[in-house]
């Protein structure tokens, strides 16, 4: 019988110097990005961030069925489903994403929802 030897997960050994150097580079790219945008964007953009509610109509039932079919195992109790709105050219589309329940993004929504309910 074939013996399968599975290697133990290697303890990641990261050279602290390498890590520090990478961190510096990353920060530099971030900072450079912010700075260049500050220079580049003279006029403040107009905002068009209305949530396109029409996209969600009747979505709840629909979602369920899709999840069932695809057998996406992530849709368990630790995740919540959110809708991501993306633009394809001028068209808006929504897609579903499962994000961890403990994500700050979800937390804030839930808290707000709760707070609003209490009022």
């Amino acid at each position: 019988e074939l013996q399968v030897k599975v290697r133990q997960k290697k303890v990641m050994e990261i050279d602290p110097e390498e890590e520090a150097e990478f961190e510096r580079e990353l920060r530099a790219v971030m900072q450079e990005s912010i700075d260049s945008r500050k220079l580049e964007v003279r006029a403040r953009p107009s905002l068009n961030m209305v949530i396109p509610m029409n996209l969600f109509e009747g979505s709840k039932e629909h979602n369920r069925s899709i999840e069932g079919e695809s057998g996406d195992e992530q849709a368990d109790g630790s995740d919540v489903t959110v809708h991501v709105i993306i633009k394809k050219g001028n068209r808006q589309q929504t897609k579903q994403l499962h994000i961890p329940r403990d994500s700050s993004l979800v937390q804030s929504t839930k808290q707000k929802e709760a707070a609003e309910l209490e009022e």
Binding site: P45, V84, L97
Partner: peptide, 17 residues
């Protein structure tokens, strides 16, 4: 960022939006 009431998220740039 996420919407205040709905389970909706979008990508937004931190500078300037």
């Amino acid at each position: 960022i996420s919407a205040k009431t709905e389970s909706v998220v979008v990508l937004l740039c931190r500078e300037p939006c």
